[in-house]
Design a protein around this nucleic acid. Sequence first.
DNA 1: CGACAATTGTTGTCGTCAACAACAATCTTC
DNA 2: GAAGATTGTTGTTGACGACAACAATTGTCG
Lengths: 168, 168
Amino acid sequence: MTASAVRAETRPSLRKRAGNGAATRDVADDVGLDALVGHAGYAVRRFQIWIFQDFIKTLGEVDIRPTQYSVLTVIGANPGLSQMAVAKRLGIERARLVHLLDSLERRKLVKRIKSKEDRRSHALHLTAQGETALAKFKRLAAEHERHVEAKIGKENRAHLLRILAGFT
Amino acid sequence: MTASAVRAETRPSLRKRAGNGAATRDVADDVGLDALVGHAGYAVRRFQIWIFQDFIKTLGEVDIRPTQYSVLTVIGANPGLSQMAVAKRLGIERARLVHLLDSLERRKLVKRIKSKEDRRSHALHLTAQGETALAKFKRLAAEHERHVEAKIGKENRAHLLRILAGFT
DNA sequence: CGACAATTGTTGTCGTCAACAACAATCTTC
DNA sequence: GAAGATTGTTGTTGACGACAACAATTGTCG
């Protein structure tokens, strides 16, 4: 629909130039309305925006964003982790995790417990309230995942997860 | 897939933690993600971050970021578009496009020409300098795309583009 | 043992980006 | 011609990644 919108107000000429032979070597000259189509980053970015928006909307009733969900999930699966460990695992900076945990702690979903072995670090745990809340979040997240399936197809989603498995 | 992921969460599954007496400091690299695997959004987000970082690095010598590149590409392929049309095509807000164009115009890559038919809007064009610059950007972008191929495989990249074709 | 380096959590700044809201100038429509 | 919509612009808010600096603590090594 975006493409048609553009085409509607563009001059009606100059479509794709089919010259250039069959060469695959020079993508640089592949100029046209769809020059961005061949770029993986663009497609991935648009897809990621769509996914996040659906996630935020689907988890909107519980006010949980993707990053918060990932933090809760990791802590729930590995109780006692330090902030550094969680940050490293999720690929976020420990400086940013501080604010995320502040918010989640204010909502009584997680708690920081001073570690005895290393008095610099905090052992992260879900509260009882956090456990039951996370269970609900996961049900909603599963619903969101079904939206993704409905959008790109069940097999495509599975294939995509396989392709990108190395990044998790 | 999501069903198994969700089911796995009901069990606390404290695998290697729980060692209260053992003073073995775990290295935080082998933290179980468990439920996070199986979420398309998480994999896509991590992949998108990787792609953008490689793009920014590969196009670093010319100081062009992904969004700037997409704007230049669309204008180059469709000279005379209005800002509204470009914004709609790229899925960015017109408010944000203003700053992007300010920057690109300062660098003499694009120019805003007051439209004669609609005196509210600007017709966007590449400058001559912008055209030659974009050619170079596209060569570097193609190099970046080869990095993506090297990362996930040529066929996987092609398949991924096919799966996400609807989002471009 | 003690000086020095490294780590952990924290605070702060900077820049990117999406989402809104408001506004003047300019069409569009009735 | 008046009311309403559109276009570009400015501004604000909040999430987010990247850095830098710091105190407290731990680890290392001479």
